[in-house]
Amino acid sequence: MFNEKETESVPPYTIFYCSKKNQFSRYIQWYFSTKKYAYEKADIFLFSYKVKDHKLLHLRRLGSVDMSLQQNKVVNLKLMAPLIDSVVIKPGQYFSIWKLTGKNNRKNGYKEALTLKGTEVSSSIGGGVCQMANLIHWMALHSKLQVVERFHHSLDFFPDNNRKIPFGTGAAIMYNYMDLELYNPSSENIIIKISVGPKYLEGSISSDTPVTTEYKVVEKNQYFKKIDNVYFRFNEIWREDQNNPSYKELLFKNKSRVIYNDKFIPQDLIKMNV
Rank of each mutant, 00 (worst) to 15 (best):
Lys5Phe: 14
Lys103Phe: 06
Ile265Thr: 02
Glu149Asn: 00
Glu40Thr: 08
Gly92Met: 14
Ile191Gln: 02
Pro11Tyr: 01
Gly109Tyr: 00
Leu269Ser: 14
Val218Arg: 13
Gly170Pro: 01
Tyr31Lys: 15
Gln93Val: 07
Arg106Gln: 14
Pro210Ala: 06
Glu219Phe: 01
Phe16Ser: 13
Glu6Leu: 03
Phe167Trp: 05
Met178Gly: 02
Leu155Glu: 07
Glu249Trp: 09
Asn72Glu: 01
Gly92Thr: 10
Tyr183Met: 11
Ile270Met: 09
Met80Arg: 04
Arg257Ile: 02
Arg150Gln: 03
Ile15Met: 14
Pro91Thr: 05
Asn3Gln: 00
Ile84Asn: 06
Val230Trp: 08
Asn104Met: 05
Thr212Leu: 01
Ile165Phe: 15
Ala140Trp: 07
Cys18Pro: 00
Thr14Ala: 13
Leu62Arg: 01
Asn22Cys: 08
Gln267Ala: 10
Tyr260Thr: 03
Ile265His: 07
Ser64Thr: 04
Lys117Ser: 13
Phe157Leu: 11
Val274Asn: 12
Lys107Val: 06
Phe95Ala: 12
Glu240Pro: 04
Lys144Trp: 07
Glu6Ala: 12
Asn273Tyr: 10
Lys36Phe: 09
Gly203Phe: 04
Pro166Ala: 10
Gly126Ser: 08
Arg106Met: 06
Ile227Gln: 04
Asn161Ser: 10
Glu249Gln: 12
Lys164Glu: 13
Asn22Arg: 08
Asn176Thr: 09
Lys5Ala: 12
Asp160Ile: 05
Gln267Asp: 04
Lys55Gly: 02
Gly126Lys: 10
Gly118Phe: 02
Tyr13Gly: 01
Asn134Asp: 15
Lys103Gln: 05
Thr209Pro: 02
Ala113His: 03
Lys36His: 14
Lys90Pro: 04
Gln71Leu: 03
Ile192Trp: 02
Gln146Pro: 00
Asn76Cys: 05
Leu155His: 11
Lys199Cys: 05
Phe95Tyr: 10
Phe264His: 04
Lys225Val: 05
Phe234His: 14
Lys73Leu: 03
Gln131Pro: 05
Lys164Arg: 15
Ile259His: 09
Gln222Phe: 15
Met178Thr: 09
Asp53Gly: 08
Tyr39Pro: 09
Ser19Ile: 07
Val196Gly: 07
Arg26Leu: 14
Ile270Gly: 11
Gln242Tyr: 06
Asn189Tyr: 14
Ser186Val: 03
Met174Trp: 13
Tyr27Asp: 01
Ser186Leu: 13
Ile89Ala: 07
Gln71Tyr: 02
Phe167Ser: 08
Asp208His: 06
Gly197Ile: 02
Glu40Met: 10
Met132Gly: 08
Val51Asn: 01
Trp238Asp: 01
Gly170Asp: 10
Phe224Gly: 02
Ser143Trp: 10
Cys18Glu: 11
Gly127Pro: 06
Lys5Ser: 07
Ser154Phe: 12
Ala172Leu: 05
